[in-house]
Design a protein around this nucleic acid. Structure first.
Length: 271
DNA sequence: AGACAGACCTGTGAGC
DNA sequence: TGCTCACAGGTCTGTC
C-alpha cells in the first residue's frame, strides 16, 4: 500500500526508534526481493550505530557511519518495529536487530520491495541519482513541469508518475491531484500551460500533505506489533470511485487505463 | 529521446 | 467448497 505519504509516515514512525541504536545483527530470511539482498548488508551493518532515517522519493535510508541501508516497500511492503522475540510470519523477509531488544522488520508478500546496502554516497546510487525533485520541496514547481513537458505527448498522468519528473507521486495521488487541479489525466503533458501547472503543483502538495497528516494520527500505534502500519481514513475523491457522483458536479466518476494503470477522473470537471 | 509493453510475485475477491 | 481469472498502491528494462 505504500505511496509517498505512507513511506513518510513509516519514516517518521521508525526514525526515533532506530536513531542512536546500535545494530546487533541482521537476519535475511528471504533474499529474493526485487533485487537480491546483498550479503554485505548482514556482514557490515551489525556493530554500527544508526545515525538517522530519512526518505527520498519512496526510498527509506537507514544511515550508519559505514554505509546506508536503502529500503523500498514496493507494492505490498511494510515496516514495523517489534520485539526481537516476536515470531516472524510468512512474508517477514528481513530483521534488523537493535541493542534495545527491538528489531526493524520488513514484510513484503509480493516481494517487489528492496533492501540494498551501499557504502558510497547513497544519493549517487543508480536508484536515487536520477530522481526528479521531491514534490514537497520548492524545486518542484510549475516552471519545471512546463519546461520539461514541452513537445511531450505523453498523458499528463503518466508524466506526473515519471520519477524523473517528480519523485514519488504514485497512482492514487496522481489521479487525486489531477482531479483537484481540474486537469484531464489523458491530456498531453506538452499541451498544458504554466498557469495550469501551477494549479497542479498546488494540488499535488495538497493531497500529499493531507494524507501525511492523516497518517500521522496512527503514529502512536506504530510499535504495536498487532497494529497496522498506518493507512487510514484518507478520503479519496475519485480513486476507486467509478460510477459514483463527482463531489463537485455530480457527474459519474469514470475509470480508464492510462499507461497501464487504472485512472479515475471526472469527465466534466477535468479538461 | 520518448513512449510503450512486459517483467517481477503473491494475495484477494468475483464469478462460476 | 473450490477452481479460474482479473486485478492490485511500483518501477526497471527492453524494444520500437
Amino acid at each position: 500500500m505504500p505511496e509517498l505519504p505512507e513511506v513518510e509516515t513509516t519514516c517518521r514512525g521508525i526514525a526515533p526508534l532506530l536513531s542512536g541504536r546500535r545494530v546487533t545483527s541482521v537476519h535475511v530470511r528471504n533474499p529474493h526481493l526485487r533485487w537480491p539482498v546483498p550479503p554485505a548488508l548482514a556482514r557490515e551493518l551489525p556493530g554500527q550505530r544508526v545515525s538517522g532515517v530519512t526518505r527520498r522519493a519512496k526510498f527509506l535510508l537507514v544511515e550508519s557511519p559505514v554505509g546506508h541501508l536503502i529500503l523500498h516497500l514496493g507494492m505490498s511492503g511494510s515496516l514495523r518495529v517489534v520485539s526481537r522475540d516476536l515470531a516472524p510470519e510468512k512474508h517477514d523477509h528481513l530483521d534488523v536487530v537493535m541493542d534495545d531488544g527491538h528489531c526493524l522488520r520488513l514484510r513484503d508478500p509480493r516481494r517487489f520491495g528492496a533492501a540494498l546496502w551501499t557504502t558510497e554516497d547513497p544519493f549517487e546510487h543508480p536508484l536515487l541519482k536520477y530522481l526528479g525533485p521531491e514534490p514537497l520541496e520548492d524545486d518542484f514547481n510549475a516552471e519545471w513541469l512546463h519546461q520539461l513537458s514541452r513537445r511531450r505527448r505523453v498523458a499528463v498522468k503518466s508524466f506526473l508518475m515519471n520519477s524523473k519528473v517528480v519523485a514519488g507521486v504514485g497512482n492514487i495521488y496522481a489521479s487525486e491531484a489531477l482531479f483537484l487541479a481540474g486537469i484531464h489525466p489523458g491530456r498531453p503533458a506538452g499541451r498544458i500551460s504554466v498557469k495550469r501547472y501551477q494549479g497542479l503543483v498546488g494540488a499535488v502538495r495538497e493531497v500529499l500533505e493531507g494524507a501525511i497528516a492523516a497518517g500521522g494520527t496512527t503514529l502512536r500505534d506504530f510499535v504495536d506489533s498487532s497494529g497496522n502500519p498506518g493507512y487510514f481514513s484518507q478520503k479519496l475523491r475519485v480513486y476507486g470511485r467509478q460510477h459514483e457522483a463527482c463531489e463537485h458536479c455530480g457527474s459519474a466518476v469514470r475509470s480508464r487505463v492510462i499507461g497501464q494503470r487504472a485512472t479515475y477522473y471526472c469527465p466534466r470537471c477535468q479538461r
